[in-house]
Write a protein that binds this DNA or RNA. Structure first.
Lengths: 151, 151
DNA sequence: AGCTGCCGGTCGATAGCGTCCACGGCCCGT
DNA sequence: ACGGGCCGTGGACGCTATCGACCGGCAGCT
């Protein structure tokens, strides 16, 4: 991860569809050299993938909620994670320090669907309680942060 | 947004670097037709961009925290949003229903940096109180959800 | 010092891609 | 039946992806 690698990561984070030729021009190397560097960044797991950023409203997912999950004493964590990951509405899942073991970011189309999701969560074995907060608006999301020097 | 558009969105969400020719093969149209459809999806805001997914650990951002912010009565919301958006550590910012007006997802390199961020937040005019929860691990994040029928 | 391998780059070639344009079928209201 | 808009196809052209051959710098050994 030298300065050029960081530059490539930065460029691809801003626009994942840049051509290798364009990347090469930006960093001052030849296209094959850039091709090889990007390949290595992918192989080492620095670059995990390239994804289109889709407007959730445009695909009928206008409701965003953040749900804290308190597990009960009998919970099998791995099993609970498995159950949660079977719920497609849950876009992100963090295992947290604190009383609420999980924090989920869920996206659904309507409040009614959110209600159903919460009911389903509360019925899930290992879940003692949930606490739901609704996002009224998303000011920004997944904003990239310029990488720091890993010296 | 017909079935082919949804298919294109889905394909690009899975892999934003697919060539138009490859997209064309997958959906059964010619490359120029796909080019035009994707252009329209971008123009109408369905596709907002294409971003590389970078491993936060690999760029020195190993600590993820979720921070609830309670505003005080004198707060100017827009000004507060502006101040928050000047803090690069804050990757996402949701305006919430409930006592905590904002929920922030922040990423920093060390706990010490998180401490500094929290101090800075608590000093910010308009902020009455914050509540921070640290993510011990990310089970998954920004998982795509297959789009529903917008009938 | 000189030799040797490796790493990481350039260069050149070729197949395939991006993108522009002209053209054509279909659906619709007249 | 006709005309126009929409949405597609096919062809053409320059540019890109990607391979293999080559090359220079550096490390470590003799």
């Amino acid at each position: 991860m030298d300065a050029i690698d960081r530059q490539l990561v930065e460029l691809l984070r801003a626009n994942a569809r840049l051509s290798f030729a364009e990347l090469a021009r930006q960093v001052g190397l030849s296209a094959p050299a850039v091709h090889e560097r990007v390949g290595k960044l992918e192989a080492t797991g620095v670059l995990r993938g390239y994804h289109a950023d889709v407007d959730p409203d445009a695909v009928g997912l206008g409701v965003t909620a953040l749900i804290g999950v308190v597990q009960d004493s009998s919970a099998d964590i791995d099993e609970l994670i498995g159950t949660l990951s079977d719920m497609p509405e849950i876009e992100s899942c963090y295992f947290m320090a604190g009383e609420e073991s999980f924090l989920l970011k869920a996206r659904v189309g309507t409040i009614a669907e959110l209600e159903q999701l919460i009911v389903r969560l509360n019925r899930t074995p290992g879940v003692s309680r949930t606490r739901t907060a609704i996002a009224l608006s998303t000011k920004w999301e997944d904003r990239p942060q310029t990488p720091r020097d890993l010296s």
